[in-house]
Design a protein around this nucleic acid. Sequence first.
DNA 1: ATGTTGTAATGAACCGGTTAGTTAAGATTA
DNA 2: TAATCTTAACTAACCGGTTCATTACAACAT
Lengths: 373, 373
Amino acid sequence: MLQERSQPTLLDICRAAGCSKAVASTVINQARGNTAVSAQMRARVLQVAADLGYRPNFASQSLARKSTRTIGVYIPSGPWTGPGFQYEGMVLRGVEEVCRAQQYDVLILNMGGAVGPQACQNALAQRRVDGVLLLHVEPGSPWIRPLIQSGACIVAVDYAHPEPGLSAMVFDNAAAIRLAVEHLAALGHRRIGFLGSCTDPPSQDAALRQEAFVTCLRQAGLSLRPQWVHDYTNACRAVGREEGVSMLEGTFGARHMLGLPPQERPTALICHGDLVAVHALQVFHEHRLELPRQMSLIGVDDAEMCRHVYPTLTSVRHPLDDMGRRATQILIRKAEARRVRPATSRLAPAVQETFAPTLVCRQSTGPPPATGN
Amino acid sequence: MLQERSQPTLLDICRAAGCSKAVASTVINQARGNTAVSAQMRARVLQVAADLGYRPNFASQSLARKSTRTIGVYIPSGPWTGPGFQYEGMVLRGVEEVCRAQQYDVLILNMGGAVGPQACQNALAQRRVDGVLLLHVEPGSPWIRPLIQSGACIVAVDYAHPEPGLSAMVFDNAAAIRLAVEHLAALGHRRIGFLGSCTDPPSQDAALRQEAFVTCLRQAGLSLRPQWVHDYTNACRAVGREEGVSMLEGTFGARHMLGLPPQERPTALICHGDLVAVHALQVFHEHRLELPRQMSLIGVDDAEMCRHVYPTLTSVRHPLDDMGRRATQILIRKAEARRVRPATSRLAPAVQETFAPTLVCRQSTGPPPATGN
DNA sequence: ATGTTGTAATGAACCGGTTAGTTAAGATTA
DNA sequence: TAATCTTAACTAACCGGTTCATTACAACAT
C-alpha cells in the first residue's frame, strides 16, 4: 500500500540531523542573530535538507513571519486575451522577473472575467498581500480608498493618484507624442492628424496624449485643422454611443480621414495607441491606400502586434516592463522596511518616477507623397 | 500617534462576541459537523465579523486545513507578451474564472522571464499548491516526473501524457484541420497547401496537424504535391537552422509558395497556427497579392489577433477557455476529494477529454481565382 | 430519583515554521 | 580557583486559524 508522500517538515530534518527546530530553522534561513551555529552542524542540516528535498512550507512561514512574500497585481481592464492585454502583459513580465528573483510570488487579480472589484479586494485582504500594484487604474476609483485604509503598500503604474502616500510610475505621454510629431516632421510631413481614443469616459492618458499633440504641432510650427483630430466626440456623431464605439475607434477615425478631400487630408496620422493604429490600417487596406507611400501611420505603446501587421507599425515604446520592474522593487523595499519597524510605515514617502518614451521606427512611416505637398 | 491598523483576527471576534474560537470558526465557515450553533450566537458572530471587516488569514487557514486553495499554472513557453501568449491567456481566462468562483487562487509560473523550471518547481513545492495545471507542456519533459512524484494533482492542457494518473484536456487537432480543408474544398479550392510549424524539435501538435492535413486531403480526394507542404525541413534548407527560424516560419513558408510557378501554386493555404498565418499575410501584402481573391489563408487557434489584421483571418477556434475551465474544475474536484480521504488519491482515475474545434469564417478565405482552375 | 438523549458551547491539540530567552559547556581572564 | 565571556545548542511561546473530544445543562423517558 502506497503511502501518501507528504512533504518533509522541519521536524523531519531535526530528527534526521539530531538538533532542535531552532537550529534547523536558523541554518536554513542562513540567518544568525545572536546565535551562531557550528560549521559541522550547519553542514549536517543542509545535507539532510537536500537529501529529503525539504522545502519550507510557505503558509507556515507567512504566518510566523507576518509577511506573505506576495505582491498582488490588480488589473481592472479586460481579460487576459483582450486586445489591450499586451499592455498588462508587458508590465507583468517585469513584475514577475523581480519577484521571482527576490523569492516573492505574484498574485494576479484580473477583472476580465466575472470578477468584481469586491472579490479582488477580498482576495487581497485574505492573502495579507505585502504590496499591491495597481495597473492602469484611473485616479478616483472608488475602491482605492478602502485599499489604502487597509494599510497595504501600494504603487500605481501609469497613473499618478492624488491620494497621499501612493507612489506611482508614470509614462511621459507628452514626450511620446513629441517624439512622434518630430519624427514625422523630420520626414517632411506638414499635415499631421491624430486618432484619439474613444472610450466612453475618456481615460486620463487619452486626454494627455491628445493635448500634447496639439501643443507639439504648435511648437513645431505646423498648422492644425480641427478635422485632423478624431476623438470620442466625432465618433459619437458618427454612430450612437451605444454602439460599443471603443473597439472600433481606429476604424472610425480612419474612415473619417478618408472622407476629407485629398488636398485637406493629413499625410500622416498619430494614433492614441497601437490598437487604434492597427484598426486604421485595416481601413486603409480596404481602400487600397499604400503605406507609407500614401499615408504614414504611427502608434503608441509598441505592443507586440506592431511587429506582426503589414506594414510593420512604427510606434513609440512605452517601457512597461521597466515600469513594472521598478514598481515591484519599490513595493518590495517598502514591505521589507515595514517588517523591520512596523509602526513607522508612514515614513516611506510617496515616490513618483517618470519614464521616457523611445521611438521605434518600422515600415509604416516614410516621407509624404511628393504631390501632396 | 497612528496605530498600524492590523487586520482583525478570529480572537478579536471572540472577544467582541463573547464566545470561543471554535464557535466563531464554525459560524464563519458555516460548517457544523457534530456541533450546532444557536441561531442567536450565529447572528452575533456574523454581525461582529461584518463590523470589524474580518477576513480570515489565508496562510493560517492553509496551514490548519493542509490545503492552500491555490492552483498553480505552469507556462513553459515565452513571456507574457510573447506572440504566443494569446494562447496561454485564453486558457488563463477560463482558469481564473473557475478558481475565483470556488474561492481558489491562481499562481502563475511563467517561464518567459529568466525563471528556470527549477525555480518554478521550488515555488510550487513551497506553496504546497493543491493542483498544477500544465499548459502546453510536451510529453516527456524531464521535470514532469519529480512533479508527479511530489504527489501533486496534475492536469495537462493540450497534450496527453503517457505518465499514469495524469489527466489531460486535449484538442482534436485532426478535426481542426479537417474543418479547414472542408471549408476550402467547399469553396472550390483544389490546390491546398500547408504552412507548418518550424520550431526546432517539432512540437507534438505540429506533427499532428501536418499529418492530419495529408490525411484529410486524401480523404477529400484532392491531390497533394510535396512542395505544397512547407515545414521545418524546408525552412532549414532555406536558411541555417541557427537563424531563429521559428519566429519567421510564416514568412519562409509564404515566400516558398510564391516561388512556385503560378500554375502549380496552391490557391489556398492552411497554417499550423495563427501567427504563422499572420506572417504569411505580411509576405503576401509585400507581393501585392490580394486576399482572398488571389489566395485564401486560414489559421488555427483563433487568437485575438485574427480580428485585427487585414484581411481579418479565418481560423479554426481552439476552445482554450473551455479547456482551462474544465481542467480547473477537475483539479479542484480532485483536490477536494483528496482532503476527504488523503490515502486514496490514486482512486481518481486519469481523465482525458477531447475538445472539438469550430470554424470561424472571416475575410481571408473565399473561392479560388477563376483563371487558376 | 436515575439514566438517557440531545444541544450548545468550551478546551486544547495541532498545522509548520520563527525567534526571543535560556542554559550548558568550554575558553578567557582576574 | 573563581568569575566572566563566548559559543552552540535548546525550550517554549507565538502566528491565526481548524477540529476533535469533552463538558454543562436542560429535556425526556423509565
